[in-house]
Every structure is written in structure tokens, then in C-alpha cells.
Design a protein around this nucleic acid. Structure first.
Lengths: 182, 182
DNA sequence: GTCTATAGCGAGATAGAC
DNA sequence: GTCTATCTCGCTATAGAC
């Protein structure tokens, strides 16, 4: 049921999806859905929260190399791979923020900021070490994340490039953008 | 009324906005809205189409310098400024695509591709001239547009940086990303 | 644990008075 | 050109049988 809801929310938007649609996709009658979620809003929040928790826990599970260049490369490849594998959840976590009640919104936002902070820390380390040339670490963080997440808007399985090749190309662009010369 | 609808759609999402809400924001009764639009779907499409037409016509009105570097800088600054000035419309044009009927969707998509093509043309020219080092012009196009559009997700009037300064910083990152050395 | 049935509400759109 | 009133529909959520 959570999978069905995820896919439907991503495709049509939270507000446009009815509990009836979720029930049909789950092969169950409407009333039965309420055995698994107290209401529609909680279902949305649950999906978003699970997604963000997965993101943070997998990020923490990454090796953290001392070298900022290696750390940035790991982050770049991780971000592309993780987000690509869960495009529905990514889309929802970004688009449906406005459908959350304020308290729930704040919790999701906090997790997103934590994720961003881990990238900014890498940039700051590299800059201090004289290995990166970024005009502003905050803006570079936003720029890189937007750029990498953008892969989801166009990448399709079986297209011109494999995901591994896409990772390589984006890593090259990231490398240049932050002024790594080698 | 179009302004009110634009703001409401951007804030709450097309599906979550009722004609009653638009009526209230327009200081008019619900029935009167149908003097200005045949239905809600047409209203959405109209807003998106107008936005994309404005984007393309302002883009065409830009000077087109022979030098690819200058052209890319113009594009970068134009994109940031234009999108910033219409963040509601930008948000809608991206997020509400799925709420369009197939035919309307195709028309908006065609305009978006035309916009992307104009950036790709700049990249291709610069690459041929040996002035840019981009591994793949298609991906670089997507990457740059995503990166620049991302400004809208965080920029707030009266924040730490003026928009002019933001333009400068992003231009520096773009310049590096496509391998312009000077 | 899942069903059917339904309460209660708000939606989009239209009709007809003014 | 705008209003009020209303039609018809589909929504979330719940109740109660099995």
C-alpha cells in the first residue's frame, strides 16, 4: 500500500490522489486503508519521513575519506545513485512539502538541512585546504545539489548513457565547478 | 484573477486550489470566474503557456554575442533574473505539468525544449571553438539549467546577498563548470 | 482484517435573476 | 457582468456486519 501511494502521489500529486485510487491500486476496499494509516495526511508524512531517514542513514554509512576531493566524489556519486533509485520518493519529498502541516514540515526540513550541511562541510574543508576554489560554500552547496538532483528530470533507463557514465560526466562537471584542477 | 490563481496554484498546488478560493482572492463570486475561463484546466494551461511564451520572447530579445563566453554569461544572468522575477509561474510550469491533458502537455514541453536548445547551441559553439571543455553538451545543458533554476528554492529578497551578487557567483561557477579558464 | 454502506462535506460547473 | 442558488458528483472518514 505504501508503494502504491508513493507511486500515485508522485504521478498525480497528493491532492489529486484519492483514497479510492490508493485502494484500487492496493486491491483492497477503501475502508481497509484506515487499518494502516490514521488518515491521508499521516500517510504522506510517513512516506516523506521514511525517505529522508533512509537518505541520511545511507549517507552516514558512506566511507568518509580525509581527502576532500575523494569525499566530494563519493558524495556526488552517492547522490545521483540514491536519488535515481527512488525518483518517486524524491519527487514527493520536494513537491509535497507544502501539503504538510507546519510541525511535520519543520521535521522534514530539518533533515534536508542536515543533508545539505554534510555537503557544505566537505566544501568548507576543501576550501580551507586550498584544494577547492568556491566563491561561496553555501551557494555552491545549493548549486551542486540542484544540479545533481536534476538528473532525475531527464534520465531514463535504457537511454543513451548508462547511469555509471552519467555519474562520471557529472563528477567531471562538479570537479570543474568547484575548481579542482587535477 | 490570473494573478490570484497563479499565486494560489504555486502555494497550494493546482489540485488543492478550489474555484471558491480563487473567487475569494479575486473579490468576486464563484460563478463570475467562468466569465474569464471556460474551466479550471484551461486556466492552468493559460498561465503556463503565457509564462513559457514570455520566457521565449524575452530570450529572443537578448543580444546574441558572437563570443560563446559572452553568450553563456548573458544566458546565465538572464535565466536567474527572469526566473527569480516570476517564481510562482516557474514553480507551476514545472510542478503542474502532470495536471495537463496530453495535448496541452506536449505544447508546453515543446517550448521548454526550445529554451534548452538555445543553451545547448551556445555550449556546442563554445566547444567547437575550443573555448569550453564539456564532456557532453546535452548533460551540461540539463546540469546548468537545473543549477540556475535552483536559485528559486532558496533565494529570498533582503537576504545575505543581492541578486546581482548571486548572479556573479553563479556565473563564476558556470564558467568553471564548462571549463572556461580565463 | 476486510467488507459494505453511508454520513457529511466541498468540489466544479451551470441557470437564471438583475 | 455579476450575483445567488443549486445540480451532481466524488471526496475523507467512520460504523457495523462478518
Amino acid at each position: 500500500m505504501r508503494d502504491a501511494a508513493l507511486q500515485l502521489f508522485a504521478r498525480h500529486g497528493y491532492a489529486a490522489v484519492s483514497m479510492r485510487m490508493i485502494a484500487k491500486a492496493t486491491d483492497v476496499q477503501v475502508g481497509a486503508l484506515y487499518l494502516y494509516t490514521p488518515d491521508k495526511q499521516s500517510l504522506l508524512f510517513d512516506l516523506m519521513q521514511t525517505h529522508m531517514q533512509d537518505l541520511l542513514s545511507e549517507l552516514r554509512a558512506l566511507p568518509s575519506p580525509d581527502c576532500p576531493v575523494a569525499a566530494l566524489e563519493d558524495f556526488t556519486r552517492f547522490h545521483i545513485r540514491f536519488h535515481r533509485a527512488r525518483s518517486d520518493a524524491v519527487f514527493i519529498a520536494y513537491m509535497e512539502l507544502r501539503n504538510l502541516e507546519p510541525e511535520n514540515f519543520a521535521r522534514i526540513e530539518a533533515m534536508r538541512r542536515e543533508y545539505e550541511a554534510s555537503l557544505e562541510a566537505i566544501l568548507t574543508r576543501g576550501k580551507s585546504a586550498g584544494m577547492f576554489a568556491v566563491p561561496d560554500t553555501k551557494l555552491a552547496t545549493f548549486a551542486l545539489i540542484a544540479m545533481l538532483t536534476g538528473v532525475n528530470t531527464w534520465y531514463r533507463e535504457g537511454g543513451r548513457l548508462s547511469l555509471a557514465r552519467v555519474e562520471d560526466i557529472y563528477w567531471e562537471m562538479v570537479r570543474k565547478a568547484v575548481g579542482i584542477s587535477t
